[in-house]
Design a protein around this nucleic acid. Structure first.
Lengths: 233, 233
DNA sequence: AATTTTCTTAAGAATTACTTAAGATTGTAT
DNA sequence: ATACAATCTTAAGTAATTCTTAAGAAAATT
């Protein structure tokens, strides 16, 4: 998705089937899912984990969705998406209008759910409510601007392809940390690595060609033998 | 807020719940809130009090939001934020853009409302009577005048449709920043994107046809492969 | 020093993303 | 009701990127 950040979404619904279904759809997008079956449990999880968005069923045993919304708002400013059955009283949903950021009626289209979740996360991040990531990163003259998506090396703008950019972004935002090829693959492609060792290596090569003066003696993108690659801090 | 100034915000909505909720959030930020339940009442209050910003519901009995916007603009230059339900016709809201400075769809996140209110107030105050929002943007000869809503390329006025204008405005006020197709769709249409990739692409094409000399080699509206589009700074 | 493993490099094939055109649909004005 | 304009959909063409294959070089191991 957006900026190489790992998002945690809390799904609160009393039906296990729904919780699990949503989990599948979101995991597919590289989003981590936490689950709770009622409002009380939800508040509990909120205390223990960093959560970036909540999907909340209106009708729940123990602390229903509406009350939960208020409780959550007292503590956190994270986006809330309300889930409700079509049949349920419109007035109730109206009352929610001030507390929630969006709502979806059941049955829902998985694509729609995913789109709305992503959209809210994006807004949350771009509103700056969520600390992080719009600063230019500068590592000894290699710079990355996450807003304009521009990378400069030795003062020159480097034209990177989307995958190359994502790899550079991952390594630069975690400069000094070594990533195995598998890890790079999984975090950039958002799917498990099966046989992609070479694929990543090829991209590393292309990147070096573009950002390094002498790609045989890389100053920025270094290999850590037998382990992986890192960006020099 | 900073600057020790007392701001007065007028909230115009026919639902009491919403008026009250907004009052709570804004008071929390040290902002004074005045309330009206329709356009007529709003104009009344405007005559009696100094108001720095208005939050206006589109759908209201007696003098609806749209007409109210025009009436207010005849007299004052203060920022107007439009509130509208998701269901309400996007085109109508688009048309409104002429009078308003920002708009928010219900349901909304209180934090977002507060953020937008503060941002408008900051602009209004720090730039005198307005200026900021009303400055002509000039990017190497492509100009956009937010007051007359006119775009000129190579000295000629370009006739843009409402959607086209909104896209150009978004890109020009954030020149250099890359927007994904999803982001463009969400910020212009105010709803999450699932399948509108092509829709946006078509508008981009139409815009290029109008503002570029050679739309095959665009000088202003550039693509960033695999990521999105941007307006050249 | 020989062998194995891991990494680098190159070129062409496959895939994906973008552009463009034309017609269908929707909305607005007369 | 009709005409007109704006917007959306579909589909095909074009450009750019990504992947695969395979061979050679460097580091580690024996």
């Amino acid at each position: 998705m957006y900026q190489m950040v790992q998002y945690n979404v809390l799904v609160v619904d009393d039906e296990k089937e729904i919780r699990d279904a949503i989990e599948i759809y979101l995991k597919n997008e590289g989003i981590t899912v936490l689950k709770a079956k009622d409002g009380i449990e939800a508040l509990d999880i909120l205390h223990q984990h960093e959560v970036h968005l909540i999907i909340l069923d209106v009708m729940m045993p123990r602390l229903d969705g509406i009350s939960a919304t208020y409780k959550i708002r007292e503590q956190k400013n994270i986006p809330i998406i309300i889930l409700s059955a079509k049949s349920e009283d419109t007035d109730k949903i109206l009352g929610l209008q001030v507390g929630a950021d969006d709502y979806i009626t059941k049955p829902f289209n998985p694509m729609e759910l995913v789109a709305r979740v992503k959209s809210q996360l994006r807004r949350y991040v771009s509103l700056g409510t969520f600390e992080g990531a719009n600063k230019v990163i500068d590592l000894n003259g290699l710079t990355l601007d996450p807003v304009s998506k521009e990378v400069k090396a030795h003062g020159e703008i480097v034209k990177l392809t989307p995958i190359e950019y994502k790899i550079v972004e991952l390594l630069m935002t975690n400069a000094g940390r070594v990533f195995s090829i598998s890890e790079i693959y999984e975090r950039v492609w958002k799917e498990p690595n099966y046989n992609a060792e070479n694929t990543v290596a090829v991209h590393i090569r292309k990147i070096r060609e573009k950002i390094e003066i002498d790609s045989k003696n890389p100053r920025f993108l270094k290999v850590v033998w037998g382990i992986g690659y890192k960006m020099e801090k």
